[in-house]
């Protein structure tokens, strides 16, 4: 299936697309823009709000010119008031709107946490099921250019502990469009975290609107020797790692978990039952991260199928450094995943 493929770069996609005539390609950023535009067209209750979204750059191109097409009433630039705008989207959502709130950086999202945790996630419950909060929040992970400690964080883990929230992290343009479209029309608050480094990635994206089911992972590459569960940008690193391992005769299975909450642990368990080895590659920190949850679920439900201790590939326990030299050492990637896979194989 063309949309299950992950293409490392534009050239690779174009090669495939030339072979399969008519395959439509979009970058990750274009896929987000298209999903937003189609949602605005499909339902007049959808509106977009965020700081700087009508800027000529349009949040790295993901909201570009939408205010010209749909007007400032539906695509609203907002004053700097993260908690306030989150609050108004919660109020609007309960009143029947489907707001899409855009945070240019995940790092701004902590300013909204009172409204997200104490309100958006709770209203449905506190009303005894009588109302819904169909709110979508997009938040972008930065990396590089000295983004450093306060502008490059992967803060997904702290959101996973809250009942009532859903958290998705698409790795491909196909999923970026389908998950965003599904999120906007979901009746729960959904937070979609995007890695800025994925924006140039190219992939097959159908022109018509479609939804990717929230809560379903996907096998990106099949293998029998080890299971690598990855999220967001780490999916690409995992595939590169798997391709290299293959040269040594090691076939790793790569799962793109896509949705962190709800989490498709059945897919992981099914794979680990086959491979007996588990590696989780996260864009964030290790403590209480998605790796902890995935490994725990495998330990709880399929302990006997593990043939070696599971390994987490995650950031060192430190904030992001600003210096490029330190940054290079700080971030995890293909080589760390390869080392992790080899470690699990050596132990069994």
């Amino acid at each position: 299936m063309p949309w299950t493929k992950v293409y490392a770069n534009k050239a690779e996609f174009e090669k495939i697309s030339a072979e399969q005539k008519g395959l439509r390609g979009l970058t990750y950023r274009e896929a987000i823009l298209e999903a937003t535009e189609q949602a605005l067209t499909a339902d007049k209750n959808v509106f977009v709000i965020g700081e700087g979204i009508d800027d000529p750059g349009g949040v790295f191109g993901t909201t570009k010119d939408l205010h010209l097409k749909f007007g400032a009433d539906r695509v609203m630039d907002s004053p700097l008031a993260e908690n306030g705008i989150t609050g108004i989207t919660v109020g609007a959502a309960v009143a029947g709107a489907r707001p899409l709130l855009v945070h240019m950086r995940v790092d701004f999202l902590p300013l909204s946490l009172d409204q997200i945790i104490n309100h958006a996630a709770k209203w449905h419950y506190m009303f005894g099921g009588a109302v819904r909060v169909p709110l979508t929040i997009r938040a972008i992970i930065g990396r590089g250019w000295g983004s450093a400690a306060q502008h490059s964080q992967s803060l997904q883990a702290m959101l996973l502990n809250i009942p009532g929230l859903k958290v998705v992290m698409p790795a491909t343009p196909y999923d970026a469009k389908g998950l965003l479209y599904a999120a906007i029309f979901d009746n729960n608050p959904v937070i979609m975290i995007e890695h800025r480094w994925l924006y140039e990635h190219m992939g097959h994206v159908p022109a018509e609107p479609y939804k990717v089911e929230i809560g379903k992972g996907i096998v990106r590459r099949q293998g029998k020797d080890a299971t690598i569960v990855a999220i967001s940008l780490m999916v690409n690193e995992a595939i590169k790692a798997a391709d290299e391992l293959s040269k040594d005769g090691i076939e790793a299975e790569v799962i793109d978990i896509r949705s962190l909450k709800p989490l498709d642990s059945d897919l992981v368990i099914e794979s680990v039952k086959k491979t007996g080895r588990l590696i989780v590659a996260d864009t964030g920190w290790k403590d209480c991260g998605i790796g902890a949850e995935i490994i725990t679920r495998v330990v709880e439900d399929a302990f006997e199928s593990l043939r070696a201790p599971a390994v987490r590939v995650a950031l060192p326990e430190a904030p992001t450094p600003a210096s490029p030299a330190l940054e290079n050492a700080y971030y995890r990637g293909k080589n760390d995943i390869i080392a992790a896979v080899k470690k699990t194989l050596a132990r069994s």
Binding site: A92, A93, N118
Partner: peptide
Amino acid sequence: FPMSVPVGSQIPHATGTAMAMKIR
């Protein structure tokens, strides 16, 4: 809406609902 026990956090909700009314 359910009465807000947290202090003041309901104020932006009202702005948001008002905006939704305007949009609709």
